[in-house]
Design a protein around this nucleic acid. Structure first.
Lengths: 215, 215
DNA sequence: TAAGAAATACCGGGAACCCGGTATGGTAGT
DNA sequence: ACTACCATACCGGGTTCCCGGTATTTCTTA
């Protein structure tokens, strides 16, 4: 076996102190080489032609200026094989989902230990996706759809049944036929669902039902 | 501040060797107390009435007999506050998604180090969701991959704008007012959206848009 | 057993939707 | 210059929704 391969690392982080500690972390690892470290996305882009191709980019998601999420797409376009780790202060950041969709490979909290961050870099290089546990919790909620609100909807069984059929695009008459009840009854249930969910039309009820994981 | 709280741990694992090493791991931690360790789900259920309530259950997902995923629901029903960590040999296990939906709190590979498993237990106790990086990769694919058509819906810019407003529950007249265009125009766009997405009513278009991540 | 919730059923009127048309000016590409 | 597409605008007729009511029959549960 020969030497372990060396991996180039870029850092994009505007907090000077935090960036300095990231730099230290990377430099202390033998198999990592810090090749570019900047405080804005705009500067990062300037390195596209001049700096060594990165294997890993560490990027703050809360950067001022251009959205850190938009930037992900550009990095991936420029360097298709790069692994991107987003860093964030907050674990309840709505941008997590956006970043994942844009192609981020990992998602770590800034309050993670240095050890955890280094391990995260190794994980992405091995093809894994390092995720801080509290962020993973968010992701799992998204996947399982059990958003916290869904426990307090106090919809009855019958109302839930009808709600599912509404979400599937059925009209009142269709539901009436499928459940063998009068269309008037379906109408009544529908009105009650609207009242309980505080919406006033079909579109909103469908949107609410899906987003809150009621179906 | 008094002593750190002690957390009860159950282990459900049929591989005798692996179970023994899990037992060792737990027993070596001061704040963890191994209170029940069995090799099948059936036996685990027997402990519902007689054994101390667990804070954490470590369970193999590949157990013979009753599905480990079904078991999750029973544990959660019996002990609503318990944190469940599933253990698996394979990171490409299709049951990952099922387990998450059933309410598992964490998902670790058996090949994880003892250190990582102990950290995982601490993570769930802190309300997080420990996930092995290679499994997290799977999850992220599910999250980002559930909108594959997203790029090829051939909706125009304007149609997308109107679609978003439709999903938010706006009527044609409201959209017309917001975009400063005639309601007839909005109607035309809506018809074109219906045709392109092959749906025939508001509910279906909202459902499609949300589920396919078009909005 | 009395009260309350759930499920059922009905009516009418105004609003909104769905669809099949037709039509025109602008703009991007070949 | 021609084609294709986009965004805009209009009409009419049938369908469906939305909301305000009222009302009866189970269930459940305190």
């Amino acid at each position: 076996m020969s030497e372990k391969p060396i991996h180039n690392v870029w850092i994009v982080e505007d907090d000077e102190l935090f960036r300095a500690s990231l730099e230290d972390l990377v430099e202390l690892e033998d198999q990592l080489e810090l090749v570019y470290s900047v405080n804005s996305i705009e500067k990062a882009f300037e390195g596209f032609e001049t700096k060594p191709i990165p294997s890993v980019i560490l990027e703050d998601i809360e950067l001022p200026g251009m959205s850190g999420i938009e930037a992900i797409r550009y990095y991936k376009k420029q360097f298709p094989d790069v692994a991107i780790i987003m860093l964030t202060i907050f674990d309840d950041d709505d941008r997590i989902f956006e970043a994942i969709k844009a192609g981020a490979d990992g998602y770590l909290l800034k309050r993670s230990s240095g050890e955890e961050i280094v391990k995260g870099i190794q994980d992405v290089l091995a093809g894994g996706a390092p995720i801080s546990p509290s962020i993973a919790k968010k992701m799992m909620r998204l996947l399982s759809g059990n958003s916290p609100k869904n426990k307090e909807t106090n919809l009855t069984k019958r109302e839930l049944t009808i709600l599912k059929l509404l979400v599937d695009g059925n009209t009142i008459d269709m539901i009436s036929a499928k459940l063998f009840i009068s269309p008037f009854t379906v109408d009544t249930h529908t009105k009650n669902i609207y009242r309980k969910l505080q919406v006033h039309n079909r579109s909103s009820v469908v949107a609410r039902a899906i987003k809150d994981g009621l179906v």
